[in-house]
């Protein structure tokens, strides 16, 4: 029969039990040493390895991303440069074409101007020459007329006939 008194004396909650302490210590130490070598060691090293693996994978992903971004940036730059180049070439071509056109037009105008001027000059010269010829001929005719008048002398009627002859002669020679 177990009474409260015996519990207090024999087996209280705080009753020391060296045998239990001994066995607990021995068991715990053995478990600790065995598991340290065969369980926790491999598990912890595997965890560390995996941590490293994950870290390196993350690092690699980051570097790949950076690389990709760099390449993208470079591509954009190249594209922009190519665009600029194309713009420049087109602009230059247009400018050149404009220049050539204006040059050609100017040259053509100058040429035509020159031709017109030379034609005018020629016309002027021809006209002057024709006038000179005409003036010489008129002078010759006048001299010839005067000669005839003087030759037939004094006779008004004769004079008149002479002039008429001369005019007829002129008209005939003209025709």
């Amino acid at each position: 029969m177990l009474t409260s008194g015996i519990i207090l004396l024999e087996g209280g909650l705080l009753n020391p039990n060296p045998g239990l302490i001994f066995w607990t210590a021995i068991s715990f130490l053995i478990v600790l040493l065995i598991l340290k070598k065969f369980a926790w060691g491999p598990v912890v090293s595997m965890l560390e390895e995996r941590e490293k693996g994950i870290q390196s994978a993350i690092d690699r992903a980051h570097s790949a991303k950076d690389e990709a971004e760099a390449i993208l940036k470079k591509n954009r730059e190249l594209l922009a440069r190519a665009d600029a180049e194309a713009d420049r070439i087109i602009r230059e071509g247009k400018e050149y074409a404009d220049k050539v056109r204006t040059e050609l037009t100017e040259k053509a105008q100058a040429e035509s101007q020159k031709m017109i001027a030379s034609a005018k000059d020629e016309i002027e010269q021809e006209k002057r020459r024709a006038l000179d010829v005409l003036r010489n001929e008129v002078a010759d005719l006048a001299i010839r007329g005067a000669e005839k008048i003087i030759r037939t002398a004094l006779d008004a009627e004769k004079q008149k006939v002479v002039v008429d002859d001369m005019i007829k002669e002129l008209a005939a020679s003209r025709n």
Binding site: T24, S27, I34, L35, F38, A39, W40, P42
Partner: peptide, 19 residues
């Protein structure tokens, strides 16, 4: 205590072996 040690040893050693 012994039972707990045994269970822990079995679990630990099997995990250690599989790891």
């Amino acid at each position: 205590v012994w039972l707990a040690s045994a269970v822990l040893l079995v679990v630990g050693l099997s995990v250690g072996a599989s790891v």
